[in-house]
Simulated assay, not measured.
Amino acid sequence: MKIILENEKHIALEIANLSIGYQRKKQDIIIAQDISFALNKGELAAIVGVNGIGKSTLLRTLGAVQKSISGAIAIEDKALQNYTPLELATKISLVLTEAIASKNLTIAELIALGRQPYTNWLGTLTEVDKAKTKEAIQLVEIEALQHKKCYELSDGQLQRVMIARALAQDTPIILLDEPTSHLDLYHKVQILKLLKTIAHHTQKTILFTTHEIEVALQLSDKMLLLRKEESYFDTPEALIQGKYFEKLFPANTIQFDPILGSFKIV
């Protein structure tokens, strides 16, 4: 496992010797193991790998939606399991691929749901909550959409709304599962450029899964190449130089061109 630990005092998320998977008949089924990496504040990082390798499972494990099989996860130097659910909701916001429960909400109403960890039992929004919601709407540039219903939006617009809800939650770490799925190339690039700008300007740590390896190569600060037995983590440039992308797919089918930073069929 290749790990780069820069500016350790600024580490937001640290994973060591993590194994992920699920239980079947009280037996641990490991999908991927020996995962170790650390992310600093203000970094945009991508998780890439072949289908079924556990990208979404890793994200859900980091977000405490499901348990790890072994290993350690620390958020701001505190073990994940030592956070209460409410405390964790102020540290990590998680956007999965599940459909929205009610698309009859307005955009502003959906984004305001990100403030739930801070509201009272009635869900009453304070002036601070309203200000955070407004700030999130401005950050993703959807002011013109805020009074529309969710069902009126395109896929690309809805992706921005879900990112805004995560921003309204105001956590130092944001986890996104396939934020560019179902989008054309232009909108994929637009979303990832937006995420990079947000990470750098707000100093939030953003980790996302993607199948768009070539786009992620150009826009991510760090990347995790997830594999079953071993994974690789570093800057895109260092991973290219180390020829790690050549290990993702069978060489007799798909090859990686380190000069162009792209894959070609052979």
Results as ranks from 00 to 15, higher is better:
Ala89Gly: 06
Leu217Met: 13
Asn7Lys: 13
His211Leu: 09
Leu194Cys: 08
Leu176Asp: 05
Pro258His: 03
Lys91Cys: 04
Thr124Asn: 03
Val161Leu: 10
Glu152Cys: 05
Arg165Tyr: 00
Ile11Ser: 06
Leu13Asn: 06
Val266Phe: 03
Thr180Leu: 15
His182Gly: 10
Ile11Ala: 08
Glu212Trp: 07
Asn82Met: 04
Gly54Asn: 06
Lys204Leu: 03
Leu219Gly: 13
Asp234Ser: 15
Asp184Ile: 11
Lys196Phe: 00
Val128Gly: 05
Glu6Gly: 01
Thr209Gly: 02
Leu96Gln: 13
Lys103Val: 06
Ile198Asn: 03
Arg227His: 08
Phe37His: 09
His201Pro: 01
Leu248Met: 10
Ile20Ser: 12
Met223Ser: 13
Glu8Cys: 13
Ser220Cys: 13
Ala238Met: 11
Gln33Ser: 13
Lys222Leu: 11
Leu62Met: 02
Ile30Lys: 08
Leu105Val: 00
Gly63Glu: 05
Lys222Gly: 06
Lys196Cys: 01
His10Lys: 13
Leu224Ala: 09
Gln33Arg: 14
Ile100Phe: 01
Lys26Thr: 02
Leu217Ala: 08
Leu207Trp: 13
Ala74Phe: 10
Thr171Cys: 14
Ile73Arg: 14
Ile47Ser: 12
Leu80Arg: 10
Ile75Glu: 07
Leu192Ser: 12
Gln157Gly: 07
Lys91Phe: 03
Leu175His: 04
Glu43Trp: 13
Glu98Asp: 15
Ile92Glu: 05
Pro250Met: 08
Glu229Asn: 13
Gln33Val: 13
Ala251Ile: 01
Thr97His: 14
Lys196Asn: 09
Ala64Phe: 09
Ser70Glu: 14
His10Phe: 15
Ala108Thr: 01
Ala164Asn: 05
Tyr244Ile: 10
Ser220Arg: 09
Glu230Tyr: 11
Gln159Met: 01
Phe37Trp: 12
Ser68Ile: 07
Ala131Ile: 12
Arg115Asn: 04
Leu167Pro: 02
Asn82Arg: 11
Gly242Asn: 15
Gln159Ala: 06
Glu109Cys: 05
Asn7Tyr: 05
Ala238Phe: 02
Thr84Gln: 09
Asn17Ile: 08
Thr253Ile: 15
Glu237Tyr: 07
Ile142Thr: 01
Asp77Ser: 13
Ser220Ile: 08
Lys55Ser: 06
Gln255Leu: 05
Tyr232Thr: 07
Ser220Leu: 06
Ser56Lys: 11
Glu246Ala: 11
Val65His: 12
Gly242Glu: 11
Thr235Leu: 01
Asp234Asn: 15
Lys264Ala: 09
Leu58Phe: 10
Glu127Arg: 14
His187Ala: 04
Ala64Tyr: 02
Ala38Met: 12
Ser56Glu: 07
Gln33Trp: 05
Leu94Ala: 01
Ile213Asp: 05
Leu219Gln: 11
His147Phe: 10
Gln81Ser: 15
Ile69His: 00
Gly114Gln: 04
Asn82Ile: 00
Phe263Arg: 10
Ser154Ala: 11
Ile69Thr: 04
Thr106Pro: 06
Val266Glu: 00
Met162Tyr: 08
Ile92Thr: 06
Cys150Tyr: 14
Pro172Ala: 11
Leu122Thr: 05
Glu8Asp: 14
Ser231Leu: 03
Thr57Leu: 09
Ile173Asn: 11
Ile191Phe: 05
Val95Tyr: 01
Ile73Ala: 10
Arg24Thr: 09
Lys26Cys: 00
His147Ser: 15
Arg227Trp: 00
Leu13Gly: 09
Thr180Arg: 15
Leu105Ile: 00
Asp234Cys: 10
Asp77Val: 09
